[in-house]
Design a binder for these strands. Structure first.
Lengths: 228, 228
DNA sequence: GCAAAAGTGTTATCCCTACACCCATGA
DNA sequence: TCATGGGTGTAGGGATAACACTTTTGC
């Protein structure tokens, strides 16, 4: 048995790099997409990865995640929620690093991408068929998908994908894309209207043919509320 | 505008101390209790705090949380789940530190406490009336309570509080303690039996008077399953 | 008038809730 | 026999799920 260490001696504290990583979702072409960046540096150079980077001394974790995302997309005012910390000892081949993961939802009408210096390319991928990812990002992505899908059922989080005005069919497509299943049109409309969060506006013809759909906007602040 | 930094120069990476903090719950005297330790050192010397400590180089985050808890209670095999990372810049007055918070559930029949060198006392407190806490531990405790209460409704997590054998009334007391409200006896028993997770054993008289209650045990592995 | 997409009601079933009395035991 | 806590059933209301046709528009 080892002798007890001197309790008054100053202990050298072990420190680790802390990064934030963001799973950015949007709806594009009726499918759930995730933003990935190709790594321009080692480790995993050339591999696709979730956007992220190390936290700065003077910024909170949330602020770090938003900063990283701002650099990549230029978007502001989106929904951001923490997923948790990922800290397996060997998750970064360079050295010990803990990632605090977030997920963000961006409305489908503002998804411009910016070039950045740490990645030579950024693109939206269907979540069903992502490329091979760097670090433990596959696990993080999977956690984010599960969280998002679960939250659809008991909150108004899906509205965060919507632009200023939208049609009921568009709302339904979001639910279907995230859950990966078809929903009954009549039941869906009744349920979504029963939330009392939508307000009709004028009319609008979507793309292509057919009868024009009524457009709606969110009544009140665009917050995520827990329902049921 | 600042000049762009040289992209090839090695950047000094900023590192921070990472601690794990655990909200340990148990049911005692029909009330939800949380384990707190009185701090023997600065900062916040003498203040009550959640058990925790800095992560070691060779241990995963979960392992760190379990180690800390083992030092404090000696218990093993309990349920442990991550809550998330708490990393406000000023949450630790000494220096920047990120806490990865967990919550754990310990069955009511094994809650022995051990003395430790970083705290001169440890005790169970009712979650409704905790003392003033160190750091941001009040926020962490509140987050844990909310998560636990929410999870009661859609998982079998409450069973993690139960000893090997138990009565239906004891199960009901757990739900009532965590949710902070009275439940209808008949409806509760029907619902809990409908899960199909309980198996009757012999009979047993509880403390005091009255008709003896049937005892049950969990059928199958004692995992937390999502229900509904 | 036809192709395309939007919009609309009813019925059966299941689940949740409310509610009050009898039973087994020890003193 | 009484005090104490354990144990049991039913009925009504609300939510959910299944299901097919009509309307509006552009070409």
């Amino acid at each position: 048995m080892a002798t007890r260490s001197n309790t008054t001696a100053p202990k050298k504290r072990y420190r680790v790099g802390v990064a934030t990583v963001v799973v950015v979702f949007t709806i594009q072409e009726e499918a759930l997409k995730v933003l990935l960046a190709r790594r321009a540096r080692e480790p995993f150079r050339g591999r696709w990865a979730l956007p992220g980077g190390f936290v700065r001394p003077d910024e909170d974790l949330d602020a770090s995640a938003r900063r990283k995302l701002g650099e990549k997309t230029g978007v502001t005012g989106y929904y951001l929620e923490q997923l948790g910390a990922f800290g397996q000892v060997d998750r970064d081949p360079r050295e010990r690093a803990v990632a605090v993961a977030y997920y963000a939802l961006i409305p489908s009408d503002r998804l411009v991408l910016r070039p950045s210096k740490s990645a030579d390319a950024a693109a939206w991928f269907p979540v069903d068929e992502p490329p091979e990812l760097a670090f433990d990002h596959e696990a993080i992505l999977e956690t984010a998908r599960e969280r998002l899908a679960a939250k659809l059922d008991y909150s108004t989080i899906a509205f965060q994908f919507l632009p200023e005005t939208f049609t009921l069919v568009e709302v339904q497509r979001i639910y279907e894309a995230v859950k990966g299943e078809q929903l009954d049109k009549r039941n869906f409309r009744r349920a979504i209207q029963a939330l009392g969060k939508l307000k009709a506006t004028g009319k609008k013809r979507r793309d292509g043919f057919g009868r024009p759909a009524m457009t709606y906007r969110i009544k009140g602040p665009k917050d995520v509320e827990i329902i049921k």
